[in-house]
């Protein structure tokens, strides 16, 4: 059995103009192997080929060459889509429906039985914090609320593979943190998550592995810790050390031919500060 959640071999996409002439190479010879149960970050600047990769995996685009497999099935196989959840870059939702109706519609597309569908809808609406607004048309939702309901629809089928394109865009730090916690929950449940994001801090915090694309070409792929670790730099985090002790340690390092690059107090992240202040004010 193929243990990969996602596998691509030489995946290439070339956009052609009206006269079928080669216009833009959006993706070139992408070889990916994402293991089941991991959170995988797909990074890159605008136009790097992230969204093209996702669209190729979902069958919204057809590859010029190469192949891809999802959960052991060819990505063109319709059966595999029942095991996938997808949150697009923007919340492309039917604005004339309310939260219940849209989740019911997507649930029907997955052929989920009526009673089970109702239970899941209730739970998801509650989980994404939209219970008070469940009957309100989506046209009256804020961007953050749309993102939440978008996420709910992406997991209505309890998918094995969740593809999230910029899941935290438009969300305030609290909601953003909740989404990140939700993604970590997915991992605990054994789900595979592909996360496309510009917010590198988010990716760093929650992803097991990442791939960085640029101009449609895979630049680097690997474990986040390994990629970020600087082998020639050593960091000590020490508590309750006097200034004299610090000086002594510095002298010792220099005596052993080491270069002290900086000695300072570690700063908390702005996110942690924000969350702490909001928590205190409650």
């Amino acid at each position: 059995m193929d243990n990969s959640a996602v596998r691509t071999e030489g995946l290439t996409k070339v956009y052609k103009d009206f006269w079928r002439r080669k216009s833009v190479s959006a993706l070139t010879n992408l070889n990916l192997n994402i293991e089941r149960g991991e959170i995988f970050g797909l990074l890159g600047p605008n136009g790097s080929g992230k969204t093209t990769t996702v669209k190729l995996l979902l069958g919204l685009l057809f590859p010029t060459s190469g192949k891809s497999w999802l959960l052991g099935y060819s990505s063109v196989d319709l059966k595999v889509k029942s095991k996938i959840g997808f949150l697009p870059e923007e919340s492309y939702l039917y604005k004339f429906l309310n939260a219940e109706e849209i989740l019911d519609f997507y649930g029907k597309l997955f052929d989920i039985p009526k009673t089970e569908r109702k239970l899941r809808i209730d739970k998801l609406i509650h989980d994404v914090g939209l219970n008070p607004y469940r009957k309100r048309p989506l046209s009256q939702y804020s961007k953050g609320m749309l993102r939440r309901i978008g996420l709910a629809q992406a997991i209505i089928n309890d998918p094995d593979l969740v593809i999230l394109d910029e899941p935290t865009s438009g969300l305030d730090p609290i909601a953003s943190r909740e989404i990140k916690d939700l993604i970590l929950d997915f991992k605990e449940q054994g789900k595979t998550v592909i996360l496309c994001s510009h917010l590198l801090a988010d990716v760093q915090n929650i992803c097991d592995r990442i791939a960085i694309l640029n101009k449609g070409v895979l630049q680097v792929m690997g474990n986040v810790r390994e990629l970020l670790s600087q082998k020639d730099i050593i960091e000590f985090v020490v508590k309750n050390l006097s200034d004299n002790d610090i000086l002594e340690v510095e002298t010792f390092i220099k005596s052993r031919s080491g270069d002290v690059l900086s000695i300072n107090h570690p700063a908390s992240t702005l996110e942690e500060l924000f969350l702490a202040i909001i928590q205190q004010s409650k």
Binding site: L60, K81, S82, I84, F86, Y94, Y106, L109, F110
Partner: peptide, 10 residues
């Protein structure tokens, strides 16, 4: 692009 939501379903 609401069609994405439908096309990504089975």
């Amino acid at each position: 692009r609401t069609i994405y939501g439908v096309l990504s379903k089975p």
